[in-house]
Design a binder for these strands. Sequence first.
RNA 1: GCAGGCGUGGCGAAAUUGGCAGACGCACUAGACUUAGGAUCUAGCGGAGCAAUCCAUGGGGGUUCAAGUCCCUUCGCCUGCACCA
Length: 941
Amino acid sequence: MYNTKEIEKKWQNFWKEKKLFNASNVSEQEKYYILVEFPYPSGSGLHVGHVRSYTALDAIARLKRMKGYNVLFPMGWDAFGAPAEQYAIKNQIHPKIAVEENIKVFKGQLESMGYSFDWEREFSTTDPEYYKWTQWQFLKFYEKGLAYKAEKEINWCPNCKTGLSNEDAAGGVCERCGTKTEKKLKNQWMLKMTSYADRLIDGLKETEFLDKIKTAQINWIGKSTGASVNFKLNGLEEELEVYTTRPDTLFGVTFMVISPEHKILETYKNKIQNLAEVEKYQTLAKQKTEIERTDVTKEKTGVKLEGLEAINPLNNKQIPIYISDYVLANYGTGAIMAVPAHDERDYAFAKKFNIEIIPVIEEITGSPKENEEKKKSIVAVLYDETKDKYLTINWASLGGRLFIGGTRKENETIVECAKREIKEETGYTNIELITEILPINHHYYAYNKDKYYEIDSTGLLFKLIDDTKIEQQLEEDEKFTIEWVDKNTILKEVKDELHIKTFNNVLNPSPYTGDGKMINSEFLNGLTNKNDSINKMIEYLEANKLGHKTTNYRLQDWIFSRQRFWGEPIPMIHCEKCGWVKVPEDELPLLLPEVTAYEPTETGESPLASITEWVNTTCPECGAHATRETDTMPNWAGSSWYWLRYMDAKNDKCFADFDVLKYWGMVDLYNGGMEHATRHLLYARFWHQFLYDQGLVPTKEPFKKRVAHGMILGENNEKMSKSKGNVINPDDMVKTYGADALRTFEMFIGDYEKDASWSENGLKGCKRFLDRIYRLKDKLNDKDSYTESLENIINKTIKKVTEDIETMNFNTAVSALMILTNEYEKTETITKEDYRTLLTLLNPIAPHITEELVEISNLGTPICETPWPTYDETKMIDSIVNIAVQINGKLRGSMEVPNNTDKEELIRLAKELDNVQKHLLDKEIIKEIVVPNKIVNLVVK
RNA sequence: GCAGGCGUGGCGAAAUUGGCAGACGCACUAGACUUAGGAUCUAGCGGAGCAAUCCAUGGGGGUUCAAGUCCCUUCGCCUGCACCA
């Protein structure tokens, strides 16, 4: 019917020659900056996933241009990094050449899709003219003290033989090859990202990122507020500093835990009596991978330090210190105060090592009243293992089924009290204590005494050893029967809040981490609000110089060194005399040397280290012999400012002219994968905020709106991969069905943000749709304006498609165009204007075929040079509307009436319908509901 | 465990935000044109029923004249973070 290949080539050349998509840096028009993450030009070429996001943003770019915006929609290459280096090693060619080849292929594929990129601004991060400025910006970080060299335990990938940032080694696995990472002490360049932690959180307010992206960033930064508290070491000057978010529980501290790497272990080596055991544990901890160490499900391990003890600064009690790998060296101070009563991990550790548990917060049940009488009491659960039943006392109508309860007498311990109550009320004497759980603060009203009570109730679980029984000693008002029942009966019949809660707690003892009433805590006792308790404790700590309020972050500084060849050389020189010295700015770019071997070395040094003629240099300060830094920058460096370069890509005086940066401002719409939500997006924002602080860029935040596309899965619903053999090559699809069909299908495939499965039949369907549009040209008549009967739907479709593309609901935009096409097909003949509008609306999604049809049908100027159609609301009003008629909410009929028929008339007409009359027989209408132009609902009895 | 999201035909999905559930497309069925069909056109297509009608948006409950949409509860799936003190 028509040759897609020829048509596509023809129009791609047309756009190119006319330079239609080149943005201007000087314009009266309003600007709109659309950015899609630039690809890594890998050897395997374009993926159908790229097609989805590029087409989506291309559609928006084309629409915005037709709406009169000065649109910047650039494209470039993120080409430094390991894959190019691997490829170069394997094929023994320079990575630069491999990258050039790949870019050529990739660019050809993008051009074959007809994207409206501004190719005049194209660059690669590997171009010396580009990485000159990446290096220059690094020097700015260094000048401001935000780039520093530090000896640090880093994540080391033994397979890639390079260090990784925390972001690249999330979960203890190398992001690139999946190898478990190790810890390695290395001297690294670091960027002080932590000093921007708060700004990175606050700045999100100025953006319109998707909520899930904002949340992911906030989680990654992991800000928490709490207190730093100093614990004295018994008999020593030094204090052990801990970070806690729960200073309110300080009176409940019964031990401390430090990480196996903590420095006091080295400092007080000679004080530790069980050093051998401690060192053995340290070695074990080091050997574990990050994954093994942070496995939440594994049992707690640790060693008690003999010879070192800490002192709780609040009550001067001596408490033991343990080392355990559940305390991380790199968070907080690497040491914690442990409150087993109110922390899951400390609780598990205390249970395992049999450490005292002191409750300081009581859960509150019931509702507190004024003038309550206070009591201490117990609730005891007695379990008979042989019968698998629990002892209850049944008060029947006097209070239902309960466990044994009672009030504690003066000088009686909790356990004594419980045993006494069991004996008195039931007669059983041969019992054994299993568990005692944390107390509950319970409030209730006693009818028999007409009094409100506040009780501190401790729950206990006992096991029956044998049936030995003495006679019950009951008081006169104790009229109940004792009954052994199973668990289900209890869950069904025990209604009292305190008793059922106690039952659940004794069966499943756990720390209490919620809000409650403070106990055992001197000046905090009685407080019931967590924040009040925390604030009061911090006041106390600060007044007594025992600690202070502080903030902590999960985010750490950015490890910026990589031991690789294919990256930007870090422009620093080390001089024996002057220390670290910057490469002078006029010597930038500091080029990568020409070498023959790119393999990473076994020593953990970058391949650059072996190129002595490059490494050896003179100190720019004193002229003495000096050596260059041989590590290179991470892959993320080049992508941390590339959107700025697009604005002024050919500038050789600075990275971008300030006035140009001001004109383009923030990126209006930025699309990329969800996998970059916490890495690229955090690095880029940090970098940009730094440049803003230096007065180098005019906006606080780089990106206004960030959206993320869903993945295109294989036809079998699995992620496309070579090994699964479900990879779809876009080139093949373009060859068979044409670029327009592929573009249309990927827009129609489903919700843009959700994953979608590939379907070649679906693609065929879209090709059919385009063919049907093609055939419409044979229905053209010679009239100019819209066909009257189509005016309504045309205007509606213009509105729908415009809104849908702008809000990225591409699937419904395509669907609306299909509906319009169906209408055209049902109409005898269509006008040029009818046809032109349909083609224009489809043009952002299928640009080639629509332009071709405009030309061969003589519809006038090419679409890309004419404005976007507007709609007329008055033409969208339906003269006749369909009204649904319901009786009691069930559909019983429908009717066609003129628009805006009044309520009374609608009810009258509704009642005339045959089926309605049938349902009204012998019924009384009690209510008539009318929603004009929509529905009539008659409520009958 | 915490946070965010999702659950609608055989499949991908719509639903003007509380107003006729399943638009549009795929697959399928029947028919037409045809030497032929991976072309095109016509009709059908959630389930049950001859029908009137009834049942259906993961399950249960509620609010309402009216619920896919709002509230409570429960189950299942996906994503991110995860011994972060």
